[in-house]
């Protein structure tokens, strides 16, 4: 389909027109092409200027800022190149190392759990359930709501003594229910659970949309061959969704490195003993609480590199899939 369209595009677009074939001059554009080019520039102009000012320029600055020593109060002349000086202190910085460790832990738990759960829910909703629409709606509702609002709901749900979750656990016979957000041991995992709850509906609808593209005949013939539900899920649905699962995993990984909202709302100062700190929190802390520009920018560069590498992997895989 794509090939077909691009052939059409080439066929119809200016450079292949009859007049051009007679006089194949490369850099002299026909009247029509010139008009199209001007229209093109005019169409992108407002967007391009805005992106230049609000995206491209700050992006470049943010990467450069990691390598300079500078106090913005003293003006630009005061800025000097610092090489890797800003990065040298990072390895011994407790907040940074805890944050990096927590982000990795976050990814290791969040990604597989939310993806497997999303796959199972989508698989069941796709084939085995009545009232698919209201159930899909209920599962997706957390994702649409702002993390800040639901963070406060979960904060109270998690309340160690008398909170609903622990009350339920105790009535089920759990003697010493976890302290959730109040304990350095469980603060991070509590935030991860809430994040999985918040996002699983989103990954689910991506899978569900992709599953609708799988032909029902495949399942029918599998059923004739005697394959049960679980078998056809594992042997048909999962392999057919291969590329979607890969991309959602990458998306979830990137999301788990960008996590911040729930950390800054559910616990104060990144939890007891900063046990729930993450990289974005560390950037925020050094930049806006400590005015330590060098450190904040160095951590930002580290975070950028992590996300850059993941995005590169994604681009590579995408190329492989589409070619």
């Amino acid at each position: 389909m794509k090939v077909y369209l691009s052939m059409r595009q080439r066929f119809f677009s200016g450079d292949q027109m009859a007049s051009d074939r007679v006089k194949p001059k490369k850099h002299k554009l026909s009247e029509m092409e010139r008009k199209e080019e001007i229209a093109g520039y005019l169409f992108i102009l407002p967007n391009f200027i805005g992106i230049l000012i609000f995206v491209l320029f700050p992006t470049i600055c943010s990467l450069l800022l990691g390598f300079v020593k500078w106090n913005p109060m003293q003006g630009l002349s005061n800025m000097r190149f610092a090489g890797l000086e800003n990065f040298a202190g990072l390895a011994n910085d407790a907040l940074f190392t805890t944050s990096l460790k927590n982000n990795i832990l976050f990814t290791i738990i969040y990604v597989p759990f939310s993806i497997v759960l999303a796959l199972i829910v989508a698989g069941l909703l796709n084939r085995y359930v009545f009232f698919k629409v209201p159930i899909r709606l209920m599962t997706f509702m957390p994702y649409i709501s702002s993390i800040v609002s639901v963070a406060y709901v979960w904060m109270i749900l998690y309340y160690p003594s008398g909170g609903p979750i622990n009350s339920i656990l105790m009535s089920l016979g759990v003697q010493n229910p976890p302290q959730w957000l109040a304990s350095p041991k469980t603060a991070l995992i509590s935030i991860i659970i809430m994040s999985i709850w918040h996002d699983v509906g989103y990954y689910m609808i991506i899978f569900l949309a992709a599953m609708q593209g799988i032909s029902g005949e495949l399942y029918e013939s599998a059923a004739v061959d005697g394959a049960g539900g679980i078998k056809s899920f594992l042997k048909i649905t999962v392999p057919m969704l291969g590329s979607n699962i890969m991309f959602v995993s990458i998306l979830a990984t990137i999301n788990s490195f960008k996590v911040f909202d729930q950390v800054n709302t559910m616990v104060t100062d990144a939890g007891p003993g900063r046990s729930a700190s993450v990289l974005v929190y560390a950037i925020y802390y050094y930049a806006f609480r400590k005015q330590n520009i060098g450190k904040a920018s160095a951590i930002a560069v580290v975070l950028f590199l992590i996300i850059f590498v993941i995005s590169m992997v994604q681009m590579r895989l995408k190329k492989k899939v589409t070619v």
């Binding site: 995206v55 491209l56 600055c61 943010s62 950037i283 930049a287 806006f288 930002a300 975070l303 950028f304």
Partner: peptide, 30 residues
């Protein structure tokens, strides 16, 4: 539309998409 420089401009858009908002907070603030 066809216009010169389109690919380069679009590639630079794609490149900036790899830099998350969270990384740019401080330079943007300044």
């Amino acid at each position: 539309l066809k216009f010169r420089g389109k690919e380069i401009i679009f590639a630079s858009y794609l490149a900036t998409m790899m830099v998350p908002v969270q990384v740019m907070l401080l330079p943007k603030y300044i």
